[in-house]
Write a protein that binds this DNA or RNA. Structure first.
Lengths: 256, 256
DNA sequence: TCAGAAAGTGTCAAGTGTACACTTTTTACT
DNA sequence: AGTAAAAAGTGTACACTTGACACTTTCTGA
């Protein structure tokens, strides 16, 4: 069996990248067309974006690089949430064709460090896909079978997101700079998968100090135009990123 | 440079193992004596327990194995909290002697997956140390300079512990089966590094349902004997392990 | 029997969570 | 010009939780 001459041939990063549009939480996936010798058709395989870690970079840099190559964006919210290293995680038959097409050493175990990323999908200009590879936004309840153990990684990322959003003001990463209160509530309802009371939601958000009202309002809507808000970045600076149980007195619980 | 013939020569696990005794939070460290050719004395180096991941095992199994070899215990609370992979993390001069003594390939980067573990230190029979290697319980505010980036890993584990203990009923992993309310409060005060009100603490713990009062009491103490309590394991079964914001109505926030 | 030590207990005021329905503002249509 | 449709925006009352605060009880050992 050939060994790669990299010092770290078997460590990768995978990115679970969430976006939010049309009141739907979406996942950024890579779609690959793998020629199938038997059928002479292409097999379509979906996978999380990821890559092997280079010798010169650390794990965060590798994840940043994957994100930048895919979306063109830098300084994106990125949170490492788990490593996956089961010896059988990439040995399933369904993944063989792809592996052989990209790896020198398809039998080797790959340990992967998984990142969760939140981006404003409106900012993303997906790189135009080649014939064999393309990035697509997939609604999270339509995620198909993915390569390797990527379904499990995705499920864990989603769970991590649900937990984090109740503890830290990170939902804003999924929205544009300016958003309405309804946008924000819709985002929270989607992620937490339940309805929230409109009046209570607004009160809590405003009182918590995490958002600031702008004087600007929507234009061109055929109903009462909503006020825009923006995330109060000073809030984070004052408190650090590890906010637990913010209440008006300094403690924080978004929804019980 | 020689390459190991393992498929995964460069992935390890490191365990940050917390224990609690004499009202002090302690860390289980490995102390190694490394012969120094210049001084003809031994250099003493402390490090987190850890090992390379074997081809046949997954990451959790590797961490379990490290723990079992060190303490003789199985089924211990173990939570993966972060991976560390900076290219320079093991290249500092101070670590050279040790590395050369244990690794075939001291220049290679090692990516490590870090675990936080909580154990009742009374259950641990530390394996009798050889001349060159020995395990010791170190109070967390006396932790010396450690090998590699282990100080950083420890700091992050401590931060993760502080956060987790406010969200999930995991403090019990550090206590014996039966404990007094004062033991429990002392543990929380130590980890959170602040005083808690005795009456409010008791009320909250009892009302939350996470502990059960036993009829048994202390004997042989020279003051009013304290009642024993135990952790209510059914509580976890009913709610799953990811408890956020438990209150009496089902929500949970331990302390604001 | 007395002193020392830690256990154990109750109340009140302020803050927070939750449930709940109508008015306002805008555009589009006739 | 008038009206309908659509979403924005607003207040209150009740129940519960939190947090501050000090004294009594129970045991041992001298």
């Amino acid at each position: 069996m050939a060994l790669s001459n990299s010092l770290n041939p078997h460590v990768s990063v995978d990115c679970v990248i969430f976006g939010f549009s049309q009141d739907t939480l979406r996942l950024l996936l890579i779609r690959r067309n793998i020629p199938n010798r038997l059928t002479e058709m292409n097999d379509v395989i979906y996978a999380l974006p990821g890559d092997l870690v280079k010798d010169s970079e650390n794990l965060n840099q590798a994840a940043d690089r994957v994100l930048a190559e895919l979306t063109g964006l830098k300084d994106i919210y990125l949170q490492q949430f788990s490593a996956f290293g089961d010896p059988t995680r990439i040995t399933k038959a369904k993944d063989r064709a792809w592996l052989e097409s990209v790896r020198q050493d398809p039998d080797a175990r790959v340990i992967t460090v998984a990142y969760m990323s939140l981006i404003d999908s409106a900012k993303v200009q997906l790189q135009p896909g080649s014939f064999s590879e393309e990035a697509v936004w997939m609604p999270i309840d339509e995620v198909p079978e993915l390569a390797f153990d990527h379904n499990e990684i995705f499920e864990q990322a989603l769970a991590a997101l649900k937990e984090s959003i109740q503890m830290q003001p990170i939902g804003f990463e999924l929205l544009p700079e300016k958003f309405t209160m309804s946008d924000l509530q819709s985002l929270y309802e989607t992620i937490l998968d339940r309805d929230l009371d409109k009046r209570n939601f607004r009160r809590k958000m405003i009182n918590s100090g995490v958002i600031q009202a702008l004087s600007e309002k929507q234009i061109g809507v055929s109903n009462k135009p909503a006020r825009f808000y923006r995330f109060n970045r000073e809030f984070l600076e004052e408190r650090g990123t590890n906010i637990v149980n913010l209440r008006m007195d300094g403690s924080f619980t978004l929804f019980n």
